[in-house]
């Protein structure tokens, strides 16, 4: 074989390799040229017939041709492989915009959400979260809170009485008493929970609602501390600074007792329908714990004192989420509940 015919062979084979459209065509081309019985192998065998001085040059030529063709073959094979893979993968196309199967995530009740938020907040401030029974004795619901049977303050709370003389707690305050008895001073506690009042239900009244009772007992607790604490707490609840004011309020278990108002968050003070034009919204009752209450729970009021407050969780949830009808909260309607 002449050098020229080798060059011709290379050129022709390169053309075949490049033109191969399938792995089979490429393989056929490879076998013809680069195979054990292919053209280059035959040419190699003929090399022995050449004069010794020409052999080296011819050998070099053959090697070069082999390399060129092998590279071209590998390149073409890679390209054909990749094409095959991408065609197979393309066939596996999926519509990822379809909704994911399986149930959507469910929803926590709005009161649960608010309650948890407050539980976490109070725990971070070192408060224990306590629970008490929903069915209470007269003692824990009234007497131990300085509300004896003949006290007119009992009229302030329309009570559900149960056969046998117990009652449905009218506030979460009994948990204060149970907390003081169980844990003793110093004490920082909250008690969120369900309470009951015998009231007809309408858009803004419920016989079943939720409160969060809070109490702190320590050696030296003052009105100034209560104010600080309430401001801190309310700033965390409303996610902004709030202006508060205390005014006298009567609750037998505190002395002095206060109503705490916050400056209206809607109008900021000048007056609007939400605050009935007063600039203030009544938010929670609070006060310094009445020494009689401490005494009844076995705490020496000469040594310890404290403050207590009651937060309406139901009211807070309604304020937070703009719920205009209290009946939704216990209505079980998913069209309402799924909004939270």
């Amino acid at each position: 074989m002449s050098e020229d015919s080798i060059r011709e062979l290379v050129a022709g084979s390169l053309e075949r390799i490049r033109a191969a459209r399938t792995l089979e065509e490429l393989e056929a081309a490879r076998v013809e040229v680069l195979g054990r019985k292919g053209a280059l192998a035959i040419a190699g065998k003929e090399m022995g017939k050449l004069p010794p001085d020409a052999r080296a040059a011819f050998g070099k030529l053959l090697n070069g041709a082999k390399q060129t063709l092998e590279q071209s073959y590998e390149a073409r094979k890679r390209s054909l492989d990749e094409g095959a893979l991408s065609r197979r993968l393309d066939g596996e196309w999926l519509d990822l915009t379809l909704p994911a199967p399986g149930p959507r995530r469910g929803h926590l009740h709005p009161i649960t959400r608010i309650q948890r938020e407050l539980e976490e907040l109070f725990r971070s401030l070192g408060f224990a979260v306590l629970d008490g029974p929903e069915v209470e004795t007269e003692y824990y619901n009234f007497d131990a809170l300085n509300i004896p049977a003949t006290h007119p303050a009992r009229d302030m709370q329309d009570t559900f009485w149960l056969e046998g003389g117990n009652l449905l707690r009218t506030h979460t305050s009994p948990v204060q008493v149970r907390g003081m008895e169980r844990l003793g001073p110093p004490l920082r506690m909250i008690a969120p929970g369900r309470v009951f009042r015998n009231e007809s239900v309408d858009a803004s009244h419920e016989h079943t609602f939720y409160q969060l009772e809070g109490m702190m007992i320590d050696r030296d607790v003052s009105v100034a501390h209560l104010l600080y604490f309430m401001k801190t707490l309310l700033a965390a609840i409303f996610h902004r600074e709030v202006t508060v004011r205390l005014r006298p309020g009567y609750f037998p278990f505190v002395e002095p007792g206060f109503e705490l108002d916050i400056q209206c968050l809607i109008c900021g003070g000048p007056g609007c329908p939400v605050c009935k034009q007063s600039g203030w919204v009544e938010l929670l009752p609070c006060g310094l714990v009445n020494p009689n209450v401490l005494r009844m729970s076995g705490i020496d009021p000469g040594e310890w004192n404290g403050f207590a407050f009651g937060l309406g969780l139901t009211r807070l949830a309604m304020m937070r989420y703009g719920i205009d009808d209290i009946r939704h909260l216990q209505g079980g309607d998913l069209r309402f509940l799924e909004q939270f």
Binding site: R104, G106, L108, I111, R194, F196, Q330, G332, L337
Partner: peptide, 12 residues
């Protein structure tokens, strides 16, 4: 809730 259930509150 993760399993798709929504919480309800009912009266006592």
């Amino acid at each position: 809730v993760d399993l798709g259930f929504t919480e309800v509150y009912n009266y006592s």
